[in-house]
Design a protein around this nucleic acid. Structure first.
Lengths: 326, 326
DNA sequence: TTGAAAGCGCTAACAG
DNA sequence: CTGTTAGCGCTTTCAA
């Protein structure tokens, strides 16, 4: 920066201003500085700037995985709003491991990001304390916490799963099995499983543990779980998969076996993935505003950074997609 | 840090050492400092540390998009190796836009990351100059550059596409159409399209421009493009899609219409996506070591950071997956 | 094994 | 509109 300043015949602080508030400078000064920057290929040292100004203009986001594209839309929404406001998004994945998440959060705090977006509401023991102490604004996404760290935006995974199982009941299905994710520290899949159980109970149907399968979110696991379920109990007339990845895997398995869906077994998912709409029969599923969750999360964080109080919890709702699969 | 030092009755520099090289300290001193850290909830200011030490232990990675899971495995490989070596991965997406990529690279340079991983070999005009001047090690992934910035790891997208089209020819298909991505500044899809054209020419078959479709990588676009192609020319007997996303979309379209694959039309993709193996008929595709690209990219960067010279270009190859779709 | 002094490259605050 | 001064919080270097 000193080098650029010398070339342009100004003080370093003027170069700093040319970069951060160019409108404050006279046109000729600005032009001289910009030429000097171009000539030298100078790139501002963002770390030193952040240290001096005590603001990084970075937001950190943690998602469980990158391989499941359902989080990509949320990140895209986050990214776009933040970018428009001059913020950068740092993305990291926790692999569904709260301790990894905590280490990521610690790194974000160490980097002094201006805000943090987390997925879900279950976190390791020290994460909350660390975040509270850091006074960094936090938004929790994708599920509605009863005790938010700060603010939150998402939808009720419980209500969504319950609505889907109620829908299956209303269609006359009575022996409804369940394929979900591993519940270990995953509040979204936990809530969905609770929704399944609640809907069955409300309909006066028994919840059989043999009708419940838990497996990581991969297409092939959905196929295997369905195969398992039907082998164990061929009277099952419908399967609710708590994620479209599992539901699509199950549906493809049926097609491969030549089983007619929903005649052999009805299938329903939850996520509203694009591929569900292309399969024949179309997958009955639940759509929620994946991208909008990111957009609102960004806006809530920016509000907090600009001084609004904490405590907002936004429910963006969901919508049933009726396909031919159920 | 001064606060922690005071509590532990040591100088700040000793706290710094407790964090970076604990083995250098006596056990009691270290214990006192660690207690003080726990009591205060101190989190080291990484920015200030990086400014002083002139090393961030961060690596930046740019992928085109997060929504296509094919890049997730590469990022996973990168992340794992880097994490083991005490480095953090910063992820950003360019949306297939070289100018966005350049802004991201500039931000990475500004953050003084210790290394940068880029996807592909086509970049905006100033990107190369900026990277060269910054002297930051760079690895290009997923395609093999003729003039690498620094080092590279991937496979020949040209050879892979050519191998697939040759395979289709060897199966007796003669009117082979093509569905690929938008070639605008995407070297992978460009190379794949060139591979398609080369294989046809080598087989003595004409390349008809009406048999070439380009569209963004979304399932539904694969479906629409196939529909278009067959409507325009029902004599097409095979379609090579340069990406499994497009191929799966096309295949699902056929199934929806009740068209038998490969009787009505043979289909082949490229990427080796897991879902291709679950669809009936299984998708003929090409697999390459997506995760290993990330692993090697990380290793090459670490080598460079530790002083090895530039210039390595690694070809990790690919493998044909023969499915029932062709 | 521990500490004192200096400074990384930038920006806030104040001044002119 | 532009400049001077004084740090931001840490680590390097040198010393004890």
């Amino acid at each position: 920066m000193a080098d650029v300043a010398r070339r342009a015949g100004v003080a370093a602080i003027t170069v700093s201003r040319a970069l951060s508030r160019p409108s404050q400078l006279s046109a000729p000064t600005l032009a001289r500085i910009q030429r000097a920057i171009a000539e030298t290929g100078y790139v501002r040292h963002a770390l030193a700037g952040s240290l001096a100004s005590n603001a990084t203009r970075c937001i950190g986001a943690v998602v469980p995985v990158l391989s499941n594209s359902i989080f990509a839309d949320t990140l895209q929404g986050l990214s776009q709003v933040l970018e428009e406001q001059g913020y950068r998004l740092l993305i990291a994945s926790s692999q569904y491991d709260p301790l990894r998440e905590q280490r990521i959060v610690e790194a974000f705090v160490g980097q002094r990001v201006d805000g943090i977006a987390l997925t879900g509401t279950t976190h390791a023991g020290n994460t909350r304390a660390m975040l509270t102490r850091s006074r960094i604004p936090v938004v929790q996404m994708w599920n509605l916490p009863t005790q938010p760290f700060d603010c939150a935006v998402g939808f009720s995974n419980f209500a969504a799963a319950r609505a889907m199982v109620r829908h299956l009941c209303s269609r006359g299905y009575r022996r409804i099995a369940y394929i979900g994710g591993l519940t270990y520290k995953n509040d979204r899949t936990q809530a969905r499983e609770r929704g399944y159980r609640a809907a069955l109970s409300e309909a006066g149907l028994p919840v059989k543990e043999a009708h419940v399968r838990r497996t990581p979110f991969e297409f092939e696991n959905g196929a295997a779980a369905l195969s398992d379920l039907l082998e164990a109990d061929s009277s099952i007339d419908a399967v609710f998969a708590a994620s479209d990845v599992l539901a699509v895997g199950a549906l493809l398995h049926c097609l491969r076996r030549g089983w007619r869906v929903p005649d052999k077994v009805a299938l329903a998912g939850l996520d509203g993935s694009p591929i569900g709409a292309l399969i024949t029969p179309e997958l009955t599923s639940i759509r929620f505003p994946r991208r909008q969750i990111g957009v609102r999360a960004a806006e809530l964080l920016l509000d907090r950074i600009r001084g609004r109080p904490a405590g907002v919890v936004e429910d963006l709702g969901f919508e049933l997609l009726t396909g031919g699969s159920a």
